[in-house]
Design a protein around this nucleic acid. Structure first.
Lengths: 229, 229
DNA sequence: GTCTATAGCGGGATAGAC
DNA sequence: GTCTATCCCGCTATAGAC
């Protein structure tokens, strides 16, 4: 739809993520960090890359952040906080199907819109310190919980079939998260369009999971699985 | 489930991936490389890590491979070749639904079984040289094509609704690939179980994509939109 | 073909002027 | 708060003995 030249006016949307607690230079460092970490990875990114991207000298980074890892943490923290905010702001309407569809739609649209920061948030977690990692895991649990309650509510009122809730939630979230691996701004789908489409897919997944014949005697299914679930 | 010390008896299944073209030491280096790259990433992995894991001196790596990048390439190449082989070996049976379900099931089970090598294959591509990267992209296209034909065949005989084929294929493959991000060997689901479950989910996704309510006035929905994507 | 030893380089973090 | 200059460590890759 958009013609050539129009991409340049699109500012890096990652800048929307930085809270008011950061000054001008700190925000520029964070934005530069997102780009560097997303394309090259944390370890392959040098502090000189980040500071050059922000237009300051290498030493200036340590005025605003205690370490390179701290820059990564602030990025990952801001992204996880914002995506949690988005799913929590979805109004719990009467129809469970509408609610789940809207929930998935917003979650997916967020990951499409912030796919660059999302890539950093998903793939560079191993570079975080143990303490910082724990903070992020906590936020992830809270996000997952929103989806769990959406499925449980639908099943409670009979709108959804009985499903292996953990597996279905994991699959739906997995589908949304994986966007950050392949989504491109110049692709065919806008974040909103993709969100709507995936909202329908999620409903189809719930129905298919309910229709599925379970293995005989598999009464304990749905237990804990992944470390970062 | 497993207590300490018991993990060591679980042979790394990545060793199944190395072809007969590699000697004993080269295979050990590749296997060690998989573990290192998966946990720390390519850039954070040192040649000392890899050689120590293989039980040889740092210099021995360069007898068997020209560079650290070459070790990564052989790993990624072997993984992509093997997953392509698996989906191609699925027999094209009469029922399109059975075929798609089996296809997804095997694709997913492969990524669960080889999730460690799969993680390297999916997340360390940026560390490859341009030439090596192109080789991998070619293999990925061939894998995607198998799924496209499965959907197209089902639609051709009326077993599947008219869907936005690119979007559906991308979502199904995305779901399978993202396993490598969270799957754990000590989790609740075996590769085969997860494959079966995801096979059902894929069918539900195809149905949901077909049943999806189009925006009002969008009378050209379906074929026309998908055709030129 | 494997080893020890090391060359050569690049990056995280810091010192101190302004 | 930003700069220039630099320390010091650790990494890839190589040299040369065995």
């Amino acid at each position: 739809m958009n013609k050539r030249g129009q991409l340049s006016f699109v500012a890096d949307v990652s800048t929307d993520l930085w809270g008011s607690g950061f000054g001008e230079v700190a925000r520029r460092l964070l934005t530069a960090g997102v780009g560097c970490f997303a394309t090259a990875g944390f370890m392959a990114t040098t502090t000189r890359d980040i500071t050059a991207g922000a237009g300051v000298s290498p030493a200036a980074l340590y005025v605003h952040f205690p370490s390179k890892e701290a820059v990564l943490f602030e990025i990952v923290l801001a992204a996880h906080r914002d995506s949690l905010r988005v799913v929590r702001e979805v109004e719990v309407c009467g129809d469970p199907a509408d609610y789940l569809r809207t929930l998935v739609s917003h979650f997916v649209a967020w990951h499409a819109r912030y796919h660059v920061a999302g890539r950093v948030s998903q793939y560079e977690l191993s570079a975080l310190s143990a303490e910082h990692f724990d903070v992020i895991v906590g936020l992830r649990h809270r996000t997952i919980e929103v989806f769990h309650q959406a499925i449980a509510r639908g099943r409670g009122v009979g709108a959804f079939p009985v499903v292996d809730e953990h597996r279905v939630v994991r699959a739906i979230v997995s589908l949304g998260v994986d966007l950050v691996r392949w989504y491109r701004d110049d692709g065919a789908d806008s974040p909103a369009e993709l969100g709507e489409f995936y909202g329908e897919l999620a409903l189809g997944m719930v129905q298919a999971a309910g229709a599925r014949a379970r293995p005989p005697g598999d009464l304990l299914a749905g237990g804990a699985q992944a470390a970062n679930e």
